[in-house]
Computed example of a mutant assay.
Amino acid sequence: MRGVAAAAGVTVGLVQHHFKTKDGLRVAVEQLVVDYYALAIAAVPDVGTPAEIASRRDESVRRMLETHPSVVNYIRRTVLDPRGSGRLLERLTELSRSEVAKLREAGLASTNRPESTQIIGLMVRQFGTLLLQPMIDEMWGYLTQKGGSSDGKPTLSVTVG
């Protein structure tokens, strides 16, 4: 809480007054992350084929994450830390479930596959790059140091079938 207060330029007492506990602060941060995702998804009109809508939504989320690197860092730490006690992954999965259900009801998403498969596919598409790109960047750095290829640095693209 002290680090948060220092970064915000306020007293620890003010942070404690507003959020009460570290858990309260974490819940507020997680809600902000979920809100960013929801706004990115809502920015895409539900027009076109299911594949076009999914692609535009994925792109909107990608742009949101590019614009908010602190969100990317928070998600990486939270999702990859086995000691994490937060519920961010559950909350983002629930947001995805809700959106998939809406699209299915509107006839804008296939009902030929189980809803759970669509939700997991969506999460893997959006999180795959987010979580694996640092590993690719590290490998690329190592290979270029060792005189590897001078081709452009690769980026990860995840497709779930």
Rank of each mutant, 00 (worst) to 15 (best):
G107T: 06
M139Y: 08
A106K: 11
G121R: 00
E115A: 10
I120E: 04
P134W: 13
L130D: 03
G141P: 02
Q118E: 15
F127I: 04
R125E: 12
E138I: 10
W140A: 07
R125S: 09
F127M: 09
Q126P: 03
G107L: 09
Q118H: 08
L131N: 02
L131E: 03
Q126G: 05
Y142A: 15
F127T: 06
L131M: 04
D137H: 10
A106C: 14
L103Q: 04
S116M: 07
P114W: 07
Q133Y: 03
Q118L: 14
M135D: 14
R113L: 08
S116K: 10
G107I: 06
L132V: 15
I136K: 08
T111N: 05
I136P: 00
G128Q: 03
V124E: 01
L131S: 03
L131I: 12
Q118K: 09
N112A: 11
P114Q: 11
Q133E: 02
I120M: 05
L108Q: 06
L103C: 09
R125H: 09
R104P: 02
G128T: 07
W140M: 08
I119K: 00
E105A: 15
I136S: 05
A109F: 01
E138F: 13
G121T: 04
I120Q: 05
M135N: 12
P114A: 14
N112D: 09
Q126H: 11
L103W: 00
G128I: 02
L103I: 04
L103G: 02
Q118F: 04
M135K: 11
M139F: 08
Q126F: 03
T129W: 10
E138R: 15
F127N: 04
I120C: 07
G107D: 08
R104Q: 15
L108F: 12
A106I: 13
L132Q: 10
L122M: 11
V124N: 01
P134L: 12
T111V: 12
S116Y: 05
Y142R: 15
L131P: 01
L103P: 01
T117G: 05
T129C: 14
G107V: 03
I119Y: 03
R104E: 09
E138H: 13
Q126N: 14
A109S: 14
L122G: 00
L130R: 05
F127K: 01
L122N: 00
R125W: 08
E105W: 11
G141Q: 06
A109D: 09
G121K: 01
R113A: 09
L108S: 05
Q126K: 12
V124F: 00
T129D: 04
L122F: 13
G121Q: 04
L103Y: 01
T117R: 01
R113Q: 10
W140R: 09
S116C: 04
M139G: 10
E105L: 15
